[in-house]
Structure formats: C-alpha cells, structure tokens
Design a protein around this nucleic acid. Sequence first.
DNA 1: CGGCAAACTTAGAGTCGGCTAACTCAGGGG
DNA 2: CCCCTGAGTTAGCCGACTCTAAGTTTGCCG
Lengths: 151, 151
Amino acid sequence: MPTATVKIAEDISLPSKVHQRTRSDHASELAEDYVEAIADAIAKKGVCRGVDLVHQFAVTHATVNNTIQRLQRDGLVRTEPYQPIELTAEGRRLASRSRQRHEIVESFLKFLGVSEQTAAIDSEGMEHHVSKETLQAMKRAMRQGRSSGSR
Amino acid sequence: MPTATVKIAEDISLPSKVHQRTRSDHASELAEDYVEAIADAIAKKGVCRGVDLVHQFAVTHATVNNTIQRLQRDGLVRTEPYQPIELTAEGRRLASRSRQRHEIVESFLKFLGVSEQTAAIDSEGMEHHVSKETLQAMKRAMRQGRSSGSR
DNA sequence: CGGCAAACTTAGAGTCGGCTAACTCAGGGG
DNA sequence: CCCCTGAGTTAGCCGACTCTAAGTTTGCCG
Ligand SMILES: [Mn+2]
Ligand SMILES: [Mn+2]
Ligand SMILES: [Mn+2]
Ligand SMILES: [Mn+2]
C-alpha cells in the first residue's frame, strides 16, 4: 500500500490542546479566587485588608503580599503600603464573572444531591475548569429538573 | 449579655479548608494525568517512551524528564536511562483509579448534553477536584436519567 | 559497518506560589 | 505622649513545573 500517512496534525493537536487548556486554567485560577474574595470582603465590611485574605486562604501574610503584587502587576488590583486593597475595573469584572460561575457550579452540585460542605469544597476547584458550554448545560439541567419533579 | 464569643474556630477553619483542599488537589494532579497517560500508552503500544508523553502533554522532552524523575522519587514509576517508562504497582493503582474517575466525569458531561470536545477538555481539569461523594451523585444522575426519558 | 536521525539526557535558567524570620508602621489605652 | 500589639513589609529560601541549548545514545538504513 502506498504512503497512507494523512491527517496526523489534528490527531496530535487534539489531546495536547486538552492539557494546554488545563495549564492555562491554573494560571488564572488564583487570580480569580483572590478578586472574588476581595470583592466579598469589600461588600461585607467596606474594605479589604491583607489579613482578610490571610484568613480566607489560610496562607501567611508574606504570601498574600506576593500574590497581591502579581495581581497589581496584572492590572486587577490597586494598593499602596498599609492601605486597603482595591479592585480595578478589570478586577471587578473578573470578580463578578467568577462569582457567577462559582455560584452556578455550587448550586448545581447541591441540585445533584451533594451535601452543602462537599458542594462548597468541590466547586472551589471545579469552577475554574468549567467552560461556558458546560455552564449552560448545568443551568439547563437545573431548570428542567426543577420543573419536572424527581420521576 | 455575658461573653458570647463561642464557636469561632470552626467559622475560621471552614473557608480555609476549602482552599487547602484545592491546593492539595493540584499537587497530585500532574501525577494522576501522567500515570494515566503512561498506562494508556502501555495498553496501546506495549511500552511507553518519553516521546509519547511529549506529544500527549505538549511539553518539551526536558520537562517530561523532570516530571518522570519526580514520579520515580514518589514511587509511581520506574525507569532507567534510554529505557521505556514503567509503572510501579502503586502507579498502576493510581492510574486505574484516575481513569475510572475521569471516565465518569467525561461521560457525565456528555450526559448533560455537552459536546464531545468540550466534555474532553473540561473533564481533564474538573476530574481532579471531584470528590467521591460528587462522583456517586454523577453516577446516580446518569442511572436515573437513562431510565426515565427526558421529561 | 558507518553514519544519521530520532530519542533521550543534562545544564542552566525563570516564574509561580508557598514558607520563615526579622523587620517597620499605625493606632488606641494607660 | 508613649508604648504595645496587630497589621504590613521585606529578604531570603524552597519546590514544582516549564523552557532553551547543547550535548549523548540508540538503532536502523544504505
Ligand atoms: Mn471561587
Ligand atoms: Mn476557586
Ligand atoms: Mn485524566
Ligand atoms: Mn486531568
């Protein structure tokens, strides 16, 4: 049989894309959780201080400082020494998107019958890997599930 | 009212536990994907070579080497210079558990109505954050969904 | 059997996200 | 008003995971 080597490019690119996407999700994951936590603190207490994030994430003050510096470099937060941490417009947009997605994933898990605590824990990690398409599917399932009983 | 400061410990530990769990998931994530890929390569071609992982994960040979060294240090794989990569008994157990979990998450997404490609991409990241309890809930939903039509 | 290409290794580097230790700063009570 | 304490900062470290660049080894083909 003469040279039957065709369509290799796609076969190679598909599996690799999967992991490239996972790596890129991880790169933005911490940023998403931080801006969400900062927005929550501001909503609840008026301002967000570093110590709030120390408690929220169970890391040291030094780690929070490093992370906030990166977020500032990336244009998501604004802060000056000894001052509260503020979100930029872009930071607020990211926080809002992240919280919406997080809430959908968490309520979907509870809709599936998972306990409150497990839903809280699992959704915190899962949220960052859920695409728009999957998010839509979760919302659809909840809509249909609610309207048509359990049978 | 006299000294009403009780149950602070739990209130502080609950949100922080959530993120500790996410961090620990990430620590084992790459190992899980690697042993799964190695088991797949062995199943399909008899042996797994570094170059198979280079293609699978779209990273360089140097990166695969580093990662395999860590996995070997952790007792999941066995390898010698210029030889194929083998799994230890522990590595095979982890690969098997990981693949089962991965398959459930992926088929659950398809069950939800998500496209093949999105299911493949999203499940690759989500799988590592899905607890036993959520996995059970996914299996239950698929069982019930299959038996009771779409209405 | 000699050489070449593909596979593999090694060295050196960088970013990220975590830590400890040792500071400095700010603000309220005595 | 001074100082104590909690909050914040800084320096220095480390491991994970990625890369580039420059080698080495293997195996096959002519
Ligand atoms: Mn979140
Ligand atoms: Mn999260
Ligand atoms: Mn997997
Ligand atoms: Mn995965």
